[in-house]
Design a protein around this nucleic acid. Structure first.
Lengths: 197, 197, 197, 197
DNA sequence: GTATAATCGAGACGGTACGTCCTGTCTTCGA
DNA sequence: TCGAAGACAGGACGTACCGTCTCGATTATAC
């Protein structure tokens, strides 16, 4: 029943991931079908069904693979120049750029949309895509706490979300345009708070 | 080509909206089909296609209608007790409750998921669901600015998102559990900021 | 329940018959729909359903009407020149021409096809189209019997069919081309018989 | 595009042909739908559309298959007892019986009706059903010519139609009842001719 | 000359079937 | 022995018509 992974064709595997990314960009997620992926990859449908349970799982693998190839070997770490606000602006602006870039936008959206409605995919998406990114923020914020640049008693995990949450929500729900200025404003408000000082 | 709205059957209209809400709760959005809605509503498929362009549009109408019936006549306004933090905690906790309630959760998620991938639906969803809610926050924050409880120079629209964004993102992406405590923490951090005071 | 024929709109009546004939020639009987007839005639569907039970009934009326308009006032009679064979050749050749003429071919075929599968239409078609024509043959053959040109003991009704049957069958089933030569051959064989004399 | 016939499911193939014959007998040709055939055969609609272009083509295959199974192995040949008239009466009476038998009547009529309006089907129907039967008559008539029982100069093909045409026409158009007596009368008139001897 | 009632054009309605696309499973055949 | 190829049962799509049913807006007698 369980396929023997050692005999898996790496050639087909890669072709499937590439076909999935190409197709989601070309026709959009709702029209991304297993049949189209198989045809584009020059692969039998069964070869997809053998290794993945759904088109979302294929796309998730493809997207993670895309991220890994883009990142290269060394894992990305948020820089620590001593200026917390500048560092956070930098990383949030980079996030905005990524969310708006064509290569990421469509598959990312597709996976988010699927995850919203499908908890299994959501869990995998969080584990493999969102959580590693969140951890980098948490580390940077912990360093800031140690340096006395951040209130010592606050939960860094929630602090992260105070900045990434607005960005993510605006991107997903398309309430208003997502810009560098917005990222800067979010960082500023989050650090200094809304109350008058 | 365009149907004559004055001859529309109100009976069928209502039955379709109700069937859509029932079915999305029963079988989930991916399995919500026009055929099932028509069958449940005791209606021909063409009667749905005559008035809506897609199942997402049906569900959006149904959801807005649900909100209007729930709200009753008087539009909801965020209370102003003078204690801004308490007022915001109250409304964010209520939002959390709503997002977690079965009647809202599934259709809301479905529309969000559709909107992520479908800009037309997103625009309508924002216009009819999110924007009215955001305006209520903006008004409350403007009142707080006039009362000197909020920094006078900040954009209230972005300030709203500093609080609703984290809630929305956590709910949509299921990164971590969505609770009253989280809502309280978000309000606290947003008002006082992350930097030490 | 039964509509009042005196109030019937002659204008609509004629428009419907014309539309039916035009459409059957343009798109063929299988695609001849009540909706298309109504649209072409500038008439509500109900006006057709009020006066006819089916599209075949409409077409039958239209076809009979066409025949009546073509025939003019005086009813056609098979000529009696004294030369039976020549007279029969003449009328059978005329029948062949009619069957092959575009104005008659398509509606005639349509009604025959419908009648084959639908006994009610068949009965009406026979009564209003085929029978009057058969009677004219019977009369001519009776005259021939009186003149001693035809065996006295044979049933003229069957004798008619010996000549019209082959023509009709070849036309309906398209076994072989329908020509004047074929009509002549049929008349000759029928009169003289297949056995050697 | 073109399906691979070697992989065709014989099981489904047979089930479809049987279902088509059953249904045409039960509900009639106008209500014979692809969906009903598929449901009755326990088959997906696509399996029908993959192998046949229309319901008429399915029914034609089913009817030919029925004829082949009924005929068994040895092809039917018109007997030659030396008495031409008796032999022809026998075969025409058998044809009348067949045309009136429930198993043949409905599918046969359906195909004739379709062929009247649809030349492609007509051509196939003629080639596979009518032509083989006509050839058997032609052979018998040729033998009769050689035996001097039939005028030597007449075209046997047309001679066949002089007898089958009236039968076919009466059956298709339902002008008058189709009986053994009628078949006998047709044979008699055809052999001896209408003219007095 | 109006009333008044049936017919009219129009088209929405609950349905059925169409022919297509895709799902997920299963089978065949060539490398 | 695996994988490409694709046939299969099934289900939903979006469209086209069916025959029924309301709607006003003419009409065309009967008052």
């Amino acid at each position: 029943m369980a396929p023997n992974a050692t005999r898996r064709s790496e050639r087909s595997h890669r072709a499937i991931l590439e076909a999935a990314l190409e197709l989601v960009a070309e026709v959009g997620y709702p029209k991304l079908t297993i049949e189209a992926i198989a045809a584009r990859a020059g692969v039998g449908k069964q070869t997809i069904y053998r290794w993945w349970p759904s088109r979302a799982a294929v796309l998730l693998d493809a997207f993670v693979d895309l991220g890994e190839r883009a990142a290269g070997e060394e894992p990305y770490v948020i820089p620590d120049t001593g200026d917390l606000e500048a560092d956070l602006r930098g990383v949030l602006r980079a996030t905005v750029d990524e969310l708006l870039s064509p290569a990421y936008d469509l598959p990312y959206r597709a996976l988010a949309a699927e995850g919203i409605v499908n908890p299994e995919i959501a869990a995998e998406f969080v584990r493999r895509v969102l959580e590693p990114s969140a951890q980098r923020y948490v580390e940077r914020l912990r360093a800031a706490q140690r340096a006395g640049q951040l209130a010592a008693d606050l939960d860094p995990r929630i602090a992260v979300e105070l900045m990434t949450g607005p960005i993510t929500a605006r991107w997903l729900l398309r309430t208003l345009p997502l810009t560098h200025a917005y990222a800067d404003a979010v960082v500023g408000m989050a650090l200094r708070g809304l109350s008058p000082r």
